[in-house]
Design a protein around this nucleic acid. Structure first.
Lengths: 109, 109
DNA sequence: ATTACATATCGCAATATTACGATGAATATT
DNA sequence: AATATTCATCGTAATATTGCGATATGTAAT
């Protein structure tokens, strides 16, 4: 089918999985890394930097924007994207909570 | 296309994105959570617990096993799965490195 | 040996994702 | 005003993912 049965899972798990999912593509990691390293970015820089088509980059940027991790403001004829610090930290906090929970079945087999 | 152009990205980014990707599905999070909470698990418990078909659970378990996050040993006629502590910690360490890096473009727009 | 049980694998259908060319919308430059 | 630049969106093709029934495999119980 290709359709995730979200109704079977808790809202929390659905949300957390979406957070992981948006980071589950190398292009999106590369875009984030580029924004992080530069002061900001415009899409066209990314096209040259990553070697993907402009339409593709724009699509990935949209997903990153939907996740809240980045935000963009129009700056003349280009767009300035940057990390949303609050959301960034929320992501990390959720991941940290998940990974630092007490594990019963640690190396039992 | 539907095919990720991995060759455009660094090995590091490709690997990291796969780590995020395997966690990018609520069923896999639910499976991990179940294994974490129980001492171990057998697939059939999960079928009842999650409400997905046995074949589907088995498939998700396979992906989790491929990622290294869980390992399974045959225990009579069932299989005991548990968290691989080393890999689990490696995952968290990688995520931590990614999220705690110095960000230049923090809230610049 | 036969049967029951637990899990894995195969094959398929449906939907999702990735990628890109073409085009549209908005602003800047001339 | 006309043109160029930058980015978003649309439509489409190709591949990936999700999910499941059927079946295979391996072990335990009878």
């Amino acid at each position: 089918m290709g359709v995730t049965k979200s109704e079977l899972f808790s809202d929390k798990k659905n949300r957390l999985s979406l957070m992981f999912k948006v980071l589950g593509h190398p292009a999106r990691l590369a875009i984030l890394q580029y924004i992080i390293n530069q002061e900001a970015c415009i899409c066209n820089d990314l096209v040259e930097e990553l070697g993907l088509a402009q339409a593709t980059i724009s699509q990935h940027l949209k997903e990153l924007k939907n996740s809240g991790l980045i935000k963009g403001t129009i700056e003349g004829k280009s767009v300035c994207y940057c990390i949303d610090d609050t959301v960034w930290n929320e992501f990390f906090k959720e991941f940290e909570l998940f990974f630092t929970q007490k594990i019963e079945a640690r190396d039992c087999c």
